[in-house]
Design a protein around this nucleic acid. Structure first.
Length: 197
DNA sequence: ATCTAGATGACCT
DNA sequence: GGTCATCTAGATG
C-alpha cells in the first residue's frame, strides 16, 4: 500500500547522476497547483542530460542565462522554450556546480482532468500528455515556473512520492531529437519509458 | 497506420 | 542565418 501521495520526494533524491534519477522518477507523481486546484499525473517517460561533456545537453556550451539553474542545487525546475512555441520541463540533478537534468517526456493524467481537458481542447485523451511540450501545456507549465523547487511541499510545481516501478516494466533506449549530437552521446541509453499495457 | 510541412522565436556561431 | 531535447493538421496507403 502506497499511501504516500502528499509526500514530496526529498531534494536528496536528485543528488545522483541524471540517468539514475531518470530511471527512479518513473512511477512518481508530477503535481501542479493551479489556483488551489490540483492537477497531477504519473511520470511515464524521462530522458537524462548529463553535464557539459554530454554534447546533447543544453550545458554543452557552458553556463548561460537559459541553463543557469542547471548549475544550481538539485530538485529545481529547468524550463526552456523551443521551436518558437513549446515549453519543456526538466528536473535538475547532481551536486551544485555540475549541470545535469532529467527531461520529463510523458505522464499519465491522474487528477484535475477537467483542467487538463480545457488546456488541451479538442484533442483525444491519449494525446493530452504524451510529449514533453504536451504535458507542459496540459499542466499550464511555462517560464514563470523556472527554478521552482520541485522537492518542496507548497511549491506550485512539485514531484510527490508514489509507487515505484519494477525493471521489468521499463524500456531503455537512446534519446530522441538529438540527431546533431556525435557518438557516443547519440546512442547513450538514457531514455526511460514505462511500458503501456 | 505512417509521412510531411509549417508554425514561430530564442539561442548560438 | 541556421538550428532547435516539438506538435499538429492534413495527405496518403
Amino acid at each position: 500500500m502506497y499511501n504516500t501521495r502528499m509526500t514530496c520526494l526529498p531534494c536528496d533524491f536528485y543528488l545522483r547522476t541524471a540517468p539514475e534519477v531518470a530511471r527512479a522518477l518513473l512511477g512518481m507523481r508530477l503535481v501542479r497547483d493551479l489556483d488551489g486546484s490540483r492537477i497531477s499525473g504519473k511520470i511515464t517517460e524521462t530522458e537524462a542530460y548529463d553535464g557539459e561533456a554530454d554534447l546533447a545537453c543544453h550545458a554543452r556550451s557552458g553556463k548561460t542565462t537559459r541553463n543557469a539553474v542547471m548549475y544550481g542545487p538539485p530538485g529545481r525546475a529547468y524550463i526552456y522554450f523551443t521551436y518558437g512555441m513549446h515549453w519543456c520541463l526538466n528536473v535538475v540533478t547532481g551536486a551544485e556546480g555540475s549541470p545535469a537534468a532529467v527531461l520529463l517526456r510523458a505522464i499519465l493524467p491522474l487528477e484535475g482532468l477537467e483542467l487538463i481537458v480545457s488546456n488541451r481542447k479538442g484533442l483525444p485523451e491519449n494525446k493530452w500528455t504524451d510529449g514533453p511540450a504536451k504535458l507542459c501545456k496540459a499542466l499550464a507549465i511555462d517560464g514563470s515556473l523556472y527554478g521552482a523547487a520541485l522537492c518542496e511541499t507548497g511549491s506550485p510545481l512539485r514531484i510527490e512520492q508514489d509507487k515505484p516501478v519494477t525493471d521489468g516494466e521499463v524500456v531503455v533506449s537512446p534519446r530522441v531529437g538529438i540527431q546533431y549530437a556525435p557518438e557516443p552521446w547519440l546512442s547513450k541509453p538514457w531514455r526511460f519509458r514505462l511500458m503501456s499495457e
